[in-house]
């Protein structure tokens, strides 16, 4: 029975996040349309929701071309890496009390590790394409992710100090007993959100694929379902980061009792997904050196100060 339940959760997560990623393709365009005073795609099916299906069919039916100058093995491997890494990241997300795939005692570290592995996908994709735009995109993403990874991890350490555990389930339980971490760890929350956007290279931090400068960045040479994998990986990253923000800073499944815990988790995550799309609609992309100096000169000191302050409070108060 226990065994069966874990399979249900695993397959539920798998289909849930893939379905969510497919729906997001449509939903994001629709929201962007609303915020730019357009209508967005509304032709296929009710509200245009059939566009998700049409997009999937299109991606599968397109010619999947591997350029003759590319490094074949790495070229094929790269898009799978991002989807694998992001899916593994979902393994530690607690959706509701008892509903999680794995309650690792290093859950937070596992999540950080998996998002770091996603860098390889972008980097290898850019390198294997053997194309100067792709290489530049891969180079940028490597530098961006390595530097934002630093304080993405550090911003969470305040939470870990207060909780005394890396397990995400413990973090949510601590919030049930006390208060949501967004209050004591507000700086950590802001830094994590910004680093999270940079990690899933969404706008405004999508410099690896800045289409105005680099054609399409690291996936310039990709077509068909390989490009689709990058796209799905990006949306999976978006969902994963939203889930993580909710779990760590907004009390995960906690909420007034008139709705079941899972619904609360879903609503909060959905709100954050909408917020990320709003960021895309509103904020322009920074220049590359601005991105770097913002990361190293502003975010990192801010995180360190937050860390020191939290440490001092935990130690002496």
């Amino acid at each position: 029975m226990e065994e069966l339940f874990i399979y249900v959760v695993i397959f539920g997560t798998l289909f849930g996040v893939f379905g969510g990623a497919a729906i997001l393709v449509w939903f994001e365009r629709r929201l962007l349309g609303i915020w730019q005073d357009r209508l967005g795609p509304n032709r296929v099916g009710p509200f245009g929701i059939g566009l998700a299906l049409a997009d999937i069919i299109k991606l599968f039916a397109k010619e999947d071309w591997i350029p003759p100058f590319a490094d074949r093995f790495v070229f094929v491997f790269a898009p799978t890496a991002i989807v694998m890494a992001m899916l593994l990241g979902f393994a530690v997300v607690p959706y509701a009390p008892g509903i999680h795939i794995a309650n690792l005692n290093i859950g937070l570290l596992f999540f950080l590790g998996m998002t770091s592995l996603a860098v390889y996908s972008v980097l290898l994709g850019g390198l294997a394409s053997n194309n100067k735009y792709a290489l530049l995109g891969g180079l940028r993403s490597a530098a961006q992710m390595v530097s934002y990874e630093v304080f993405m991890g550090l911003s969470l350490m305040g939470v870990v100090m207060l909780t005394g555990s890396f397990s995400l389930v413990d973090i949510v339980h601590w919030q049930a007993d006390n208060y949501w971490f967004v209050i004591p760890q507000f700086i950590g929350f802001v830094v994590f959100v910004i680093a999270g956007i940079a990690e899933s290279h969404r706008l405004p931090f999508d410099l690896p694929e800045a289409e105005h400068e680099l054609v399409a960045g690291f996936h310039t040479e990709y077509s068909g379902m390989k490009f689709g994998m990058f796209m799905v990986g990006e949306y999976l990253g978006l969902i994963l980061i939203s889930c993580m923000i909710v779990t760590i800073f907004f009390g995960g499944w906690l909420g007034p009792a008139f709705l079941p815990p899972f619904i609360w988790f879903f609503i909060k995550s959905f709100a954050f997904i909408c917020f990320f799309i709003l960021l895309r609609a509103a904020i322009p992309r920074p220049r590359y050196d601005q991105l770097m100096s913002f990361g190293w000169k502003f975010m990192l000191p801010l995180t360190l100060i937050n860390l020191l302050a939290t440490g001092a409070i935990v130690l002496w108060i």
Binding site: G33, I34, W35, Q36, D37, R38, L39, L278, A282, I283
Partner: peptide, 13 residues
Amino acid sequence: TLFEVLRHTFTKA
């Protein structure tokens, strides 16, 4: 900026 864009949720396309 974020708020101004969010306000457009309620404007007509």
